[in-house]
Design a protein around this nucleic acid. Structure first.
Lengths: 185, 185
DNA sequence: TCGCACATGTAACGCGTTACATGATTAC
DNA sequence: GTAATCATGTAACGCGTTACATGTGCGA
C-alpha cells in the first residue's frame, strides 16, 4: 500500500506552480527537489500520459516562437483537487537505506583507516551540499522572495541545511574517537 | 549499476557477528539497523540460498535442544573476503525520498494548519526515535561494552541521535515561522 | 561539424514489498 | 484452545532505474 506511485503527485505539484513540459518538470525536479526527491524520465512521461487520460492535466502542443516544439501540460481543476486531497494526508515513511551506516555497522571487518576514509567522504559531501544549499537560499531570497511558494521552498532548503550541519558534526565527533583509538595502537 | 543487491552484504555482515538462522538475521536487522536499513524476508531467504550456492556461507541443520529446528548459517572464508572487499568501497547514494519534504515543497496548496500538523507528526516521530536511541545506547554501553562491534554500533546510533536532534530543531524553527504568519492573518 | 541542451518517449530488468502458505512450539 | 512467536519459504506485482532510440536547434 505504501508503495503507491507518488510520481503523479510531484507532477501535479510542479504543474501547480505553472504549466510546463515534461522536460521542464524533470529539470525542475533535478534543480529544486534533488535533495529529497528524484524522478527519472522513465517515470515522468508514462505518468503524464496517465494523468492526461484521467483528465487531471491538460495538454497543449506548443511550438513557442519557432523554438523546440514541446507539449505544455497544465493542471486541471480535477488535478488540483487530487493534489490537495493528497497533501494533508500523513506522510508515509519508505524504508531507510543508508549504505555508509550499513558499512560502518560492520566496521569491525575493516581497518580503522578504511572507516575514516568512508566518513571523510561523507563529510565532504555534506560540506559541498551545505555550500550549495546556502547559496541556493541566498539566491532564492533575492529572486523569489515574493512568490507564494517561497516560504515553502525555504522550509525544504532549511531542512537540508539543518541535516547537513548535523551530518558534519557527527562526522567530526566520530572521527575524533577514531583518531584517539588509532593513536592508542 | 547502483541498483546492485546489497541484501547479500547485510547477510554476510550479520553472519560475521555470529552464525545465525535466516529468522535471526531478519530479527537482528529489525532490531539493530532499522533506522538506516531494512530487509524483508522475501529478500533474505532467496539471498541466503544464493550465497550458499556461491559457498560464501555454509549451512547446518540444527534442532537445538529439542526446540524449533532451524538452519544455522555461518560465514565461510570466501564470504568474509567478499564482505571485506565490499566494505571499504565508496558508499553509493540511492536516490532520496522524503515524502514530508515533498508535501511541504508544495505547501502553497495546503492550509498552514495542515502544514503545521504534518510537521508536528514528524517532530513527534523524531522525539520518539530519539528516546528509543538514547535508551538503546545506554543499554548497549551496559551490556556490550567489550564487544569488538560495540564502537561501530555506537557510531550508527550516534548518527541517529544527531539526525533526530537536527530534525527536532528544524521542526521547531519552521513551526515558529508558521505561527508568526498564522498570527499575521 | 561537433557537441550540448532541448525534448519525448520506450523496453528491459530487477529490486523490494506485500501477501500468502505452512507448520512447530510456547504461554496463557 | 488459541494466540503469539519461531521458522522458512514462494509468488505476484509494480516501482524506478538504466539504457536506448530519435530528432531539433544552437553555439563554438
Amino acid at each position: 500500500m505504501s508503495r503507491i506511485n507518488k510520481t503523479k503527485y510531484i507532477i501535479l505539484g510542479m504543474l501547480a506552480i505553472r504549466p510546463m513540459s515534461g522536460y521542464e518538470i524533470h529539470s525542475m525536479i533535478k534543480k529544486t527537489t534533488a535533495n529529497f526527491w528524484s524522478e527519472s524520465s522513465g517515470q515522468i512521461y508514462p505518468n503524464l500520459a496517465a494523468l492526461l487520460k484521467d483528465s487531471a492535466i491538460s495538454c497543449e502542443n506548443e511550438s513557442n516562437d519557432s523554438k523546440h516544439k514541446s507539449k505544455i501540460y497544465a493542471l486541471t481543476k480535477k488535478g488540483l483537487e487530487v493534489l490537495q486531497q493528497w497533501l494533508p494526508t500523513t506522510a508515509t515513511r519508505h524504508p531507510p537505506r543508508d549504505e555508509l551506516l550499513l558499512k560502518l555497522f560492520f566496521g569491525k571487518n575493516m581497518t580503522e583507516e578504511e572507516c575514516q576514509k568512508l566518513i571523510l567522504q561523507r563529510k565532504h559531501k555534506a560540506e559541498e551540499n551545505l555550500e550549495f544549499l546556502t547559496s541556493t537560499k541566498e539566491h532564492l531570497e533575492q529572486q523569489h522572495k515574493n512568490r507564494a511558494d517561497f516560504p515553502y521552498w525555504l522550509i525544504t532548503i532549511d531542512h537540508g541545511i539543518f541535516t547537513a550541519h548535523a551530518e558534519i558534526e557527527w562526522c567530526d565527533a566520530i572521527l575524533k574517537n577514531l583518531k584517539k583509538s588509532l593513536r592508542r595502537r
